[in-house]
Nucleic acid binder design. Sequence first.
DNA 1: TGAGATTTGTACGTATGTATA
DNA 2: GTATACATACGTACAAATCTC
Lengths: 227, 227
Amino acid sequence: MKYIDIYEDIKQRILNKKYQSWSPLDGEVMLCNYYGVSRTTIRKAISMLKKEGFIHSRQGSGIFVNPPEFYEDQNLKSLSEMLDSHTLKTKVVKFEKNVKNKELSEMFNVHPDSNFFHYLRVRIIDEVPKVIEETYMPEFLFKEMTKEVVEKSMFEFIENTSGYKISHDSKEIKGVQLTKDEAKLLNHKENDIALEITHKVYLIKSILAQYTKEIIIDNFFKVITVK
Amino acid sequence: MKYIDIYEDIKQRILNKKYQSWSPLDGEVMLCNYYGVSRTTIRKAISMLKKEGFIHSRQGSGIFVNPPEFYEDQNLKSLSEMLDSHTLKTKVVKFEKNVKNKELSEMFNVHPDSNFFHYLRVRIIDEVPKVIEETYMPEFLFKEMTKEVVEKSMFEFIENTSGYKISHDSKEIKGVQLTKDEAKLLNHKENDIALEITHKVYLIKSILAQYTKEIIIDNFFKVITVK
DNA sequence: TGAGATTTGTACGTATGTATA
DNA sequence: GTATACATACGTACAAATCTC
């Protein structure tokens, strides 16, 4: 798709700091000529870049490159993926199959005897354990699941390998005090304040595919919106 | 603007539960005829509805209405405005002018002698105090500021009355324990866990116009993303 | 201050591609 | 396989905001 290519090209230029913050991008007509496409196509690419906070535009004026803080935390990935620019290690503390649990079955809206995968990972950033990540997934949806998958990216597995399509994504953020076990895993003191993010991933038709609870010790979460 | 009208019309139908969750909307061509506009215009309205989580579409299949949890907390307004559907009262606890403060001046990037407005409001939802909101704004930007404005909507004041345009918006969310004073205002116990949201509103060219710290006692914040 | 040029925004129409039913 | 429905892409015209001289 042309507009995707153009979007990627401009995005890379911005990420590689080819433009100064607030500096104007070429006008739409100029971009049409440069990429050899119609204005509709350029505007589609521009629209995506705007949505993700890379640029903004004003009628009569032009298109302008945003400073990095506008787009850095924009893409709603797994919270831990947000930290991928740092040296990141993942330690799988636990990996179980055939877990049965009444509350889980209710949450996932499946038969009470259903089996779940369960794994617990600790994310280590710059040699410091920062995030505990505990995940449950129904086994009947993911038959090819292995420990190897858990050691890599679950997100990618769902999107590319499993054949399912992710429909939406809900996160609930709250402040909590660390339990004894959590404190131990994170080298912190019991009752220290942390953020708990419960994360549900849904497939088409609102089928819940994954439930994750993250405990994150860097006690903040940042959201930037561009008008 | 036609596409805005169409967007509003369909949005209202969805909010008023004229459609069942997951039920198909009319096709694009049908909507063109109904509203008497081109397909481009329909697609612009559809695109906005998608962005805000009201609907989703799949190629070859159709356009489908999302269930309420997709769109309820979508719009990034002031966090307290998110609760406007409940009976909401605002109590202005403090309103000061001519506040000088070194840290504030640095944060706003203005001369150290600059004056700030400062006000502290408590938001009362269903008769229960839930949110403490403390705001600082530089006086030189907002000359017409009065206590009356503070008692109503600050957001509207900036957008409509002051003549400035909001460029972007950053929020930082963290877990905190209530101080003695905060606990008193919220009828809670000292050291109870709450969420603190620091909120910065920027005008064009990254001019910081408002700094708000919210302490919110309902200890969660929900984000839903639709792919 | 004002008129004209520039630039993005809105809207129309048409044709073809691609996923789904 | 065919029909349907959304997705992509082209081109054109005019409106509205902004910038420049």
